[in-house]
């Protein structure tokens, strides 16, 4: 295996991860809810109900984060890797997949593993494996 040391950002990634963990801790202990982004977004598709206000508030904070970030620092590097057709296909797969799979990187990967849930471990291993295989196919079999 060939490590990309020039791209490796251990401290920023560890600190960013710790903030994500802090957010999940705050939401479960403070608001009593799991920080699963796909569940929060998917839940908005069912109109009304007592879960609506906290879900909307969480998403306002999430989407507003770059504005707050911009008050203190330059925007972080963000380089897209896919064209429009691929983005549409990928978005559909992520939308359908996270709802059938009942979670994504946050709900299963962070919160579920932190709960020591075997179900979330199975989900995390599944989406990680699919991610690795997909990038291998796209970059090395089709694009190589």
């Amino acid at each position: 295996m060939n490590i990309a040391w020039d791209a490796f950002t251990p401290w920023a990634s560890l600190a960013g991860g710790a903030l994500i963990g802090l957010s999940a801790a705050l939401l479960i202990l403070g608001s009593g809810r799991v920080a699963g982004i796909s569940g929060i977004v998917g839940g908005l598709l069912k109109p009304g109900g007592p879960e609506l206000p906290w879900r909307l508030a969480f998403l306002v904070g999430l989407i507003g984060a770059p504005l707050v970030w911009g008050l203190f620092a330059a925007p972080p590097e963000a380089q897209p890797v896919a064209g429009t057709g691929t983005l549409v296909l990928a978005g559909l797969l992520v939308g359908v997949g996270t709802r059938y799979g009942a979670g994504c990187t946050s709900g299963h990967g962070v919160c579920g593993l932190s709960r020591l849930s075997p179900r979330s471990l199975a989900a995390t291993l599944s989406f990680m494996a699919a991610g690795f295989v997909t990038v291998y196919v796209v970059r090395h079999l089709i694009g190589g």
Partner: peptide
Amino acid sequence: PLVLGSLAFGAGWGLAGYCPGPALVSLGM
């Protein structure tokens, strides 16, 4: 549903490099 859904999600994540949270933050950018 858990396993197949997660596999589909992982494929989409690999194709675009976005999972739901980062996609929404990037929308905010």
